[in-house]
Design a protein around this nucleic acid. Structure first.
Lengths: 237, 237, 237, 237
DNA sequence: AATGAATGAGCATTCATTCAT
DNA sequence: GATGAATGAATGCTCATTCAT
């Protein structure tokens, strides 16, 4: 235990290879599950992809089902942590609210649209009947926490006079809905790359609507007239 | 649909049984696919559930994949038709906009949360990678059409001075997002029954936010104080 | 259904091939089970040996365990029927008892030492722990019935004054023990061919002892002095 | 076995643990083999049962097959030694023959029906095809020796005028057959406990028949009327 | 000497699909 | 047109065995 490198696993040096293999298995499994789903994923393929033999998967993770559960919860946890992180930078008492919200929304949809995030979402949808507990677990550890945290921020902003929200949790959910809801359709559920410009536009429009609904008079569109993607003028006033 | 209604199920009476079998197969397949997913669904089970023999499925639909495609597109088409229908009752020049929108939203989420609708959604998510074209086809025939139609209504309302919308398509998407987005999480992706009261509350809150963002001064909450789950009046200061 | 051949199965002509396959499977399974035992028998090998595909075995017999049960009980039933048959020829009031008993014993051990009989015995021993019910079933349908039947004959002989038996069932068991017990050891549990002469000698000696114990004075050794295989004279008196 | 009794378990004290492990392995293996058979016995289970790791089994015994051979021969040897021992107490010139024979028979069937003895028998039956040499080895070292020894005793008794036997080996085999043959069926091949009273009855009946066949006039039933389960006196007439 | 970890080979079972009837 | 029967191809999982430690 002289220089380092082995320090990071904490255990005996021999554990190094073991942990590498475990990680390789889990990563390969995520790739394969995301590609073909739970039922169609064959352990042969996962083993090959991970560069290990099939029994090694069983030694490490016990069964296909346990592997699936582990992969999903672990991946979801990682995604969730990243998502929660985007709130860290969010200013408590922002100079200008609109850009702050747009920044937040951009980072948020970035997390939500991340390849692994979308893969987990697809798998949870796909197996909602067979693994209902997985859905609950991931939701509890992820989206719900983010919603709560965001609700807290919104409540503080409201208290500071920057927003008019009555039910912060609902407002938080609506914020997420406004900035994200259109994207899965555009990316074919995370299956096709998104045009960043379109994403930015969706985000801006979502934040705009959010602020129209919950903002105070102090806020004005960032760049007037930039919000419209379809009909240019004509309507309101 | 004037003259022969029965004509559309085939001319000779002998085809009657044939079409019955086909329908039985498709319905059974939907049930089974919805329950266990594409890969885990076995044709034996579907055949048994439909009360036919396995080769009959092949005679009628060619292969498991074609069966899946057919079931999904057909079911989606039915759902979509029902969804589009909810716009029929929507008044062009409503006396009071809020209740009209709430009624519309209620009917809409009813369609979206319908068991078959949710099953199709889960299956599209599950097989988004393997059947990307299915996702596109269903989206094109369904949600997109509804969005467009709703956008048209919103534009007319805007023209009539009832709303202030610049981009009607976007507004339509946001309307849907606001009234529906929270529900899949609540129903575990259509897997668990929803509490109608909670649904109504979500819908009302979504419409409320929508009107705060896009409504004109003429609109006020339907029942003062009923819209929020928290404090009713103004929050901030 | 002109000449015949199909008549013997009774069902539709198409059933012919089906029944042939079933029989082929069962026969192959018996061979393989007898050769390598239950656990080591692979369905691949059985299928190949039977000239059918593996799923066909499942179509016909459901599972390896069911196949085993079926093969054992069916084979045992056949063996048992044959064994019971040897009593048919046994004279009720024999002129001379000794040759009748020797004939009976010879036929009996022929049945007991039959290849299939021994195979079933080995398999029952081998799987007595895993399939205790099989042991009971086969015993009830086979040996017990024979013992009872033989006991009946012995009782009648006793009543007719040809034997002195108090407990006919026990005497029957002892008769079987005397004429058969040595043979499994000699044939390595049915694994090696028996020398017919040795078998005859064992049988004769067994019957001799039986008659010494249960016979009346009327009976005398068939061929005086022929019973001894080891020490020639010297002993008795 | 004069000087060092402990010498035989190895010289250095360090070997103590090694030999303990070996013994633990063999005992565990016997338990597992007896329970599930050769093929179904997994070395993982045996290792766990023995409290050692799997490679340790290989270090000590080389392979599953060698382990099986060793376990069977060693266990058989132990059983055989015990069985041979029952002849030690058998009086050369008994006062009364019947009780002596009954005592001998009781002890003998006790040995034969011992759990380990039956387990070995079942395993030899089960693997008679795969391990024919094992069957021969065990038979040579065990039953044959006992038979020979018993034959010697019977010959001496005959010489002393207590019995009338012409072929002592055959008589020995018949003695064993008479007192033991019924028991495996009653205990489901050693799988179920025997009722001692029934065993005693079988033994007594066996000895009775043996004496009726080979005894001299000097011998009479031990307890008049106790020998038969049916009518005691003469039957026919 | 003992073990944790890894693996190649094998097995029971299932399934989508086809063919003869 | 409908079906019973059959099958090639996979799949999840287990096991005896070996190697590095």
């Amino acid at each position: 235990m002289s220089v380092g490198e082995k320090e990071e696993t904490g255990g005996r040096p021999a554990d190094r290879g073991r942990l590498d293999k475990r990680r390789a298995i889990v990563e390969a499994a995520l790739r394969v599950f995301a590609q073909v789903g739970y039922a169609q994923a064959s352990l042969d393929v996962i083993a090959a992809e991970a560069g290990v033999s099939k029994p090694t998967i069983y030694n490490h993770l016990g069964s296909k089902e346990k592997l699936f559960r582990y992969v999903l919860t672990e991946t979801a946890a990682r995604s969730n942590a990243k998502t929660l992180d985007v709130l860290t930078d969010f200013p408590t008492d922002p100079d200008r609210l609109r850009p702050a919200l747009e920044d937040l929304a951009a980072k948020l949809v970035d997390c939500y649209c991340d390849e692994q995030s979308e893969a987990v979402r697809r798998l949870l949808y796909a197996e909602a009947v067979r693994f209902p507990d997985l859905f609950d677990a991931v939701r509890a550890s992820g989206p719900n926490q983010f919603t709560e945290a965001l609700a807290g921020r919104l409540a503080r902003l409201a208290n500071a006079g920057h927003l008019r929200v009555e039910d912060p949790v609902r407002a938080a959910n609506q914020f997420i809905a406004l900035v994200y809801d259109e994207l899965p359709g555009m990316s074919a559920l995370g299956t096709r790359p998104l045009d960043p410009a379109e994403v930015a536009e969706v985000v801006r429009a979502g934040v705009d609507t959010f602020l129209r609904a919950f903002g105070t008079h102090k806020e004005a569109p960032d760049a007037p007239g930039a919000a419209a993607s379809g009909a240019s003028g004509g309507v309101s006033g």
